[in-house]
Amino acid sequence: MKLKYEMTTIEIDNSIMAVPVDCDEKFNGIIRMNETTAEILELLKSDTTEAQIVDALLSKYDAPKETIQGSVKRVVDTLRANNLLV
C-alpha cells in the first residue's frame, strides 16, 4: 500500500499538516497530525506494509511494539476510510 496522492507537509503555528496535491474532489481537505503520523505518512509515500512501518518506527522509538502497532493501525485506517491509500 501507499499514498494515493502526492502529499505536501507544512508546519505552521506549532502544528504539522499534510495536504494532498492534485487529488480529486473526494478529498478536499488537510490532515492535522503529530510527528509520528508525519513519519508514517512519509513512509507511505512509497509502497510498504503496516508491518514494515511498525518495524521502521520500532527501530527509531523506544516504545512497546503494541503501542506502535496501535498508532500505525489508527493512521492507516483513517487514511483508508478517506480513500487516501492505494
Partner: peptide
C-alpha cells in the same frame, strides 16, 4: 485558515 493553508500547500507544490 485551513483553506488558506491547503491552497498555499497545493499552490507551492505546483
Amino acid at each position: 485558515y485551513y483553506n488558506a493553508v491547503r491552497d498555499f500547500s497545493v499552490r507551492k507544490s505546483f
